[in-house]
Each structure stands twice: as structure tokens, then as C-alpha cells.
């Protein structure tokens, strides 16, 4: 084997290994669910997760400061307008849970809920 061919083979193997690692990394990335918050609703209003599966929630407020709170999933965050918050959750129990806005945002604040179904 010439020096050039050996170098080419080494580079190919290294690239293949790197690609394999990158590919594995993507497979390990949690599923992402985008959620928007605006007075007085979350959109989508219902999301479905799987027990034991890590999921990244990416939540953006479109108007005023809101909050997102659900104690069983340890979600407790402020949502400043225009900013996106990310949180990764891994449900440990099945069931239907109500996450709420816990940042008073107006008269219908009490109706601002996100239903999370864990299957």
C-alpha cells in the first residue's frame, strides 16, 4: 500500500467513524415539541408524551409574560415575551396532566391550560 492510499484509507475510516458518532448523537436527541403561549391559551392545547421518553418542550410567549407550571413533571418556568424557553421532561407516570400559566395575565388567566397526555 502506498503512503497516499494508506492516508486516504485512514481519512475515510475517520470520517466514517465521525459520521457514525454524529448519527448516534441525533438518534439520542429528544423529540422536540414547539408550544406557543399567548393570552389566554397554549397552542397546541394538548400534547402527547410517552412514559419514559425524554422530550424537549420549546415554549415561546407571543405577547406578555406567562408561566408554565406542572409539578408532577417538574415544569416551573417563566415565559418572557419573545423569548423561547427549552426544557426536557421525561414522564414517569401515565395519565392526563394539566399544566397552567402561573403568571397572572388577565381576566381569563385561569383558563390558560396545556393538557399533557402521557401514554
Amino acid at each position: 500500500m502506498t503512503k497516499a492510499r494508506a492516508l486516504a484509507l485512514t481519512m475515510t475510516m475517520t470520517l466514517a467513524a465521525l459520521l457514525a458518532v454524529a448519527s448516534r448523537g441525533r438518534a439520542d436527541e429528544p423529540r422536540v415539541i414547539d408550544i406557543t403561549a399567548k393570552r389566554f391559551e397554549f397552542s397546541p392545547a394538548t400534547i402527547t408524551l410517552k412514559k419514559g421518553e425524554a422530550v424537549k418542550l420549546r415554549v415561546t410567549s407571543e405577547d406578555v409574560t406567562h408561566g408554565l407550571f406542572l409539578r408532577p413533571l417538574k415544569i416551573d418556568t417563566d415565559l418572557e415575551p419573545g423569548q423561547t424557553r427549552e426544557m426536557t421532561v421525561t414522564p414517569e407516570k401515565t395519565g392526563t396532566f394539566l399544566a397552567i400559566c402561573h403568571h397572572f395575565c388577565g381576566a381569563q388567566h385561569g383558563n390558560m391550560k396545556l393538557t399533557i397526555v402521557v401514554e
Binding site: 407550571f69 406542572l70 416551573d76 397552567i100
Partner: peptide, 12 residues
């Protein structure tokens, strides 16, 4: 106390 946190019936 946590009466119904999902109804916002609590104090953090």
C-alpha cells in the same frame, strides 16, 4: 398549601 396546584390553588 398544595390544595390543587393544577387549578392554581397553591402558593409556590
Amino acid at each position: 398549601f398544595d390544595l390543587r396546584p393544577d387549578w392554581e390553588w397553591f402558593t409556590g
